[in-house]
Write a protein that binds this DNA or RNA. Structure first.
Length: 792
DNA sequence: AACTAATACTTTTTT
DNA sequence: AGTATTAGTT
């Protein structure tokens, strides 16, 4: 037996033991599994520095850990959990650990598993706020007026429902868009406001006071539909706790220890929820960084973290300031910048890594030059064997990505876009899952409505109205109303036949649910419904990738035991793993970059109006400016060794060119940590040479166009799997991308007709290795790499 | 009911 | 500029 190791941990345990009533079996009578755990656990505490260790070992009472960027925040949380488990203070099922994203939850689960040696299977209460609330609600659904089988609505469903209510309330949908009300309701829910508690002023702001009324009707409708939106998961759970002392007491007893990740991002509802739960044994540990609060615009309250000590008297606050990520200049520059914020708790990060390179700041003429400069820089880093995976470009707004994508496509530089539309948000995926939803649960009105006329089967508004009013009159779900109505002469002959056909299909599928593999059934449904065919006939360039996505969906479904299991997952977990081990440059927004790190980080677009964003300034004034500054801080601190900031002299906003002035953040950077780059190749070019600007170029200003969320992903998928790369095929694409270093046979000849995902159809006019010059019918002449193109 | 023309909107985004 | 959505037309 590893007596010595067990011994030393035993000492730690005793020192930290509370009154003793809750930990009877720690040193004397351990269960076999606990002893096995103790035997197996690594000296996890020794991997921590003094600051981290203090934060981990203070297990009792409220604790706030202020963990700056790159200080090992996740390590603290996971080690804390491991410590709780290993010392026998709590079983996995007695620990509540909340995160904001599924990704964070997954990572935490993994890392706890590593620490405890994979022995921790059961941590049922480690998850996102929403998934945990959903779990609690399913258990006590009746109390809040739901059945435990309630469905979770996505944004689409939400807006469809609101539109109906607005129409019924005779409100001009033009002046008062459902979208806006959805956002408003969301923000009310974020603040824990039920319809009766909405402040009069705000209630009046939408449709002269009708907003609050609709909110109330909306909630009623949700109950009728046995449904909850994302905000409800939290708000209803909160109400459940507030109004039912017995239920709350049950969870007080269950959760011996509570941990919260990214506490600075919590909104009011989440704060109230946590506070109620913490009333039990007060073992609440929140980890966060006030300097990284960048989600104020969607309800996060920095105040929650700033007020922690008042909210939880006797709270211990730990500052973790040893940074393991960045070099000295980077850290100092970031610190100097964020120091200009007033509302902060204040931390002083330090690093042992050494000074490293200074931050580079560079002014350029316009966004094209910016992309060109950064592209060149990346190519030279690549030649010096810098992994592309360790390079990121972080932009303030997604439209900035276009210039980079254009440039990278031309250079043949492999890149990936992170963020943007998620897999499950794509129309084809939503349509497909709507079919499955209705089949599994015929009472899912909103999904039924979604597929009512998809693919087009001649059922329009008129038919839908009839079915809806029938459903309303009889107080039955739409599907059943439709089933009844086709037995009558209510509808004309054509719609009647179409609707009868739809119902018959659903009935048939449902009867097959038991007898066949769910993935097969899903394929059959997509086939028979005509949905696959719909996209096969579609001749838009994106149709191909949509079909690919459907295949991907089926493949992903195979990872679940049952259709129901899959659908439950889909409603809550809006992300699919794209484990992509190809070496690529990452392109994303600053928001999407939080929590990530890269050797080299490019930060383009530091101009007044764009960053800090004008809208943020207009809407939130000083607070908005400080949040933008935190965003800048997040951006810089993503870098491990190299950070390059740039700004343009001219920026096109909407359609027109404006001269831009450098962001105030540029001048706020402490000078001693910054190196100003003046391009020696073209001295002074960005102050004096509009002559060679894009205005002279053929086709300039008409650079094709698709900055839509859609094609970026399509583009990526196109690049990812032109051939059957599916199951971890060889990474041959990589070779094709690295144009200059690879010699191989040209795949296309001059005069050949080709199809490009972004530029459409064109004719090859020049071939240079794997680089092609193509005259596109609509986009003009472009240089592209052959892997982005297919024979037309 | 489906097509075409005009109109509005354009920061960041998770669940 | 460009798209997405909606209103009006066939």
């Amino acid at each position: 037996m590893a007596a010595s190791r067990k011994q030393s941990s035993g000492v730690d345990v005793v020192r930290n033991a509370p009154d003793g009533s809750q930990e009877p079996a720690i040193t004397t009578k351990r269960s076999v599994s606990e002893r096995a755990l103790a035997h197996a656990f690594p000296p996890y505490l020794e991997a921590l520095n003094a600051e981290q260790r203090a934060a981990v070992e203070t297990l009792e009472g409220p604790v706030l850990v202020l963990a700056g960027a790159g200080t090992g925040k996740t390590r603290i949380l996971t080690t804390r959990i491991a410590h709780l488990l290993a010392t026998g203070r709590a079983r996995g099922s007695q620990i509540l650990a909340v995160t904001f994203t599924n990704k964070a939850a997954r990572e935490m689960k993994e890392r706890v598993g590593q620490l405890v040696g994979g022995a921790v299977k059961g941590m049922p209460w480690l998850g996102t706020f929403h998934s945990i609330c959903a779990r609690i609600l399913r258990r006590h659904a009746e109390i809040v007026g739901l059945k435990s089988s309630f469905t979770i609505l996505d944004t689409d469903d939400q807006i469809r429902l609101l539109k109906q209510l607005l129409a019924a309330g005779d409100i001009d949908a033009k002046r008062w868009p459902a979208r806006q009300l959805a956002g408003q309701i969301d923000s009310w829910k974020n603040r824990g406001l039920t319809p009766d508690k909405v402040p009069a002023g705000e209630a009046f702001a939408f449709a002269n006071g009708k907003g609050a009324e609709i909110y109330e009707q909306y909630q009623t409708r949700l109950k009728e539909l046995n449904a909850a939106d994302f905000g409800d998961l939290l708000l209803e759970c909160l109400r459940l706790f507030q109004n039912n002392a017995d239920v709350l007491a049950e969870f007080h007893q269950r959760f011996r220890y509570m941990l919260v990740d990214e506490y600075q991002d919590t909104n009011v509802a989440q704060y109230l929820w946590l506070r109620l739960l913490a009333q039990g044994n007060r073992n609440l540990c929140c980890v966060g960084d006030d300097d990284q609060s960048i989600y104020g615009w969607r309800g996060a309250e920095v105040d929650n973290i700033l007020r922690f000590e008042e909210d939880f008297p006797g709270a211990k606050v730990f500052r973790v300031e040893q940074n393991y990520r960045s070099t000295g200049h980077i850290l100092a520059a970031a610190s100097g910048l964020i120091a200009q914020n007033e509302g902060r708790l204040g931390k002083t990060l330090h690093t042992d890594i050494g000074d490293g390179e200074k931050l580079r700041v560079q002014g350029v003429w316009d966004d094209e030059e910016e992309a060109r400069t950064i592209g060149d820089e990346i190519e030279s880093l690549q030649r010096a064997n810098h992994a592309l995976n360790e390079i990121a470009i972080l932009v303030r707004a997604s439209f900035q990505m276009r210039a980079f994508e254009d440039r990278f496509v031309t250079l043949g530089l492999p890149y990936r876009v992170i963020g943007g539309p998620r897999f499950y948000e794509r129309a084809e995926i939503k349509d497909a899952t709507a079919f499955l939803d209705v089949m599994v649960n015929s009472a899912n009105d909103l999904k039924f409505e979604r597929v009512f006329n998809v693919p087009k089967r001649g059922l329009g508004q008129a038919s839908l109205q009839k079915v809806m009013s029938h459903a309303r009159a009889r107080a039955i779900p739409l599907y059943h109303a439709a089933k009844e109505i086709v037995e009558t002469d209510e509808l004309g002959p054509k719609p009647r036949r179409a609707l009868a056909g739809l119902i018959a299909m659903f009935e048939r599928w449902r009867s097959m649910l038991e007898g066949m593999a769910h993935t097969e059934l899903a394929e059959l449904i997509l086939d028979e419904s005509g949905y696959t065919e719909m996209w096969q006939r579609d001749k838009s360039p994106q149709a191909h990738s949509r079909l690919e996505n459907l295949k991907e969906l089926i493949r992903f479904m195979g990872e679940f035991e049952t259709m129901q299991g899959f659908l439950e997952h889909v409603s809550l977990v809006m992300d699919a793993d794209t484990n992509d081990d190809v070496d690529r440059v990452s392109l994303m927004t600053l928001h999407a970059a939080k929590g990530l790190e890269f050797d080299t980080v490019f930060l383009p677009g530091w101009e007044e109006g764009l960053f800090p964003h004008q809208r943020s300034l207009d809407e939130s004034g000083q607070a908005g400016l400080e949040e933008e500054r935190r965003l800048a801080y997040v951006g810089i601190t993503r870098a491990k060794r190299r950070a390059c900031i740039s700004f343009t002299q001219n920026r096109r906003i909407h359609a027109l060119w404006q001269s831009a002035i450098p962001s105030r953040f540029v001048d706020e950077l402490p000078e001693e940590h910054v190196e100003v780059v003046v391009d020696s190749q073209r001295p002074g070019n960005y102050f004096s040479n509009p002559g060679t600007s894009r205005f002279d170029k053929p086709g300039a200003g008409f650079q094709s166009s698709y900055s839509t969320p859609g094609w970026r992903r399509a583009q990526r998928q196109w690049a990812e799997k032109p051939q059957a790369v599916r199951d971890r095929g060889p990474i041959t694409i990589d070779g094709e991308f690295v144009a200059s270093s690879t010699v191989h046979d040209a795949r296309y000849g001059v005069g050949e007709r080709v199809m490009h995902q972004k530029f459409g159809v064109g004719t090859v006019t020049e071939v240079d290795g794997n680089k092609l010059v193509i005259d596109f019918e609509s986009a003009g002449r472009k240089r592209v790499v052959d892997s982005f193109v297919t024979p037309a």
